[in-house]
Design a protein around this nucleic acid. Sequence first.
DNA 1: ACCTGAACACCGTTCAAGT
DNA 2: ACCTGAACACCGTTCAAGT
Lengths: 191, 191
Amino acid sequence: VPRPRQIDRDAVLATGLEVADDVGLDGLTMQAVADRLGVTPMALYRHVANKSDLLDGVVERLLGEIVPPDDELGWDDQLIAIGRAVRGAARRHPAVFPLLLQRPATTPTAKRARERVYAVLRKAGVPEPSVPRVERILSTMVLGFAASEVSGRFHSHSRKVLDADFDAMIELIRAGLPAVVGGAGDRQAAG
Amino acid sequence: VPRPRQIDRDAVLATGLEVADDVGLDGLTMQAVADRLGVTPMALYRHVANKSDLLDGVVERLLGEIVPPDDELGWDDQLIAIGRAVRGAARRHPAVFPLLLQRPATTPTAKRARERVYAVLRKAGVPEPSVPRVERILSTMVLGFAASEVSGRFHSHSRKVLDADFDAMIELIRAGLPAVVGGAGDRQAAG
DNA sequence: ACCTGAACACCGTTCAAGT
DNA sequence: ACCTGAACACCGTTCAAGT
């Protein structure tokens, strides 16, 4: 498949994500990406430092697909919307998604996503000192669930069962949240 | 390092876990395992079908280290004990642990662990139809947290902060559980 | 500036051969 | 029965060379 021979970092990362979607994480090799771009593997090293950097970039791109919800929504609907967006990204990119749980969430995109959740939690009335802790717990739950779902841990269960699982997890969060914050759960934000 | 040249499956898997502990998942190669056993890589194929089978076996072995808690304890103390055991296994084997979230929980050891949690949930008064769902949610939370912890997602946080996070997660479960089951939360088991 | 050719060390895996 | 030698296809990566 001949293609343009002029490539850039964005093209390399986008193609990397495509390759992983099509042939899995084991199939995501420098050679496979290069082939798809109509280029030799060595050409990629001008745009990514090495394979690890390629993986980081691909994960970053996946993270970028998780768009924040409408700011007008109530805090609980916003959290649900974020959860759905995460699950959707996981289903579109099942091979790459589990890497999200295995890399430090220190990239700009990761930080931006976290700040969005912080804002929603403040809106939910979570007191400031508890905000980062609650974010870590909730993101762990949602990422862990979505990763389990797409990597086959819940292999024997239908989509319908898993949707109900996810709804139950949301209910558990809603009901349990007041117990883990300073004592409040549903007053308006204080700033 | 010369060693006995008679090996069996158990020795291969135990050595595989050791190698991963020492040099990481990328360093867990057939050759590294063979070297440590004082044998050529090809000799391993008599005892494991291939590398994937080796990984499965190593994960299975890690799972076997998570010993069930004392049956005399209350249900909540038992759940906490299981959570602690999972975190301990994760810290002993940080390279291998995240694989637990990526493989179908269909092995005998996985099934046995799950049945133990079922028993505790019944003791907690969770109605029978909700038991598997609650188990999936709780195991996702605990596995997801432990995996995040050891794979560097919470890299910037101290052990003390993460211990408090874990305690908060347990509190969230305790407080939220009644909302996700048929309506009960703390009566004794029915069988 | 950007891509290529050739080369290196290292993978997983096979198969016939040794003992 | 169990391990070894030799071989194959495939990795990631480097470096000097091309345009």
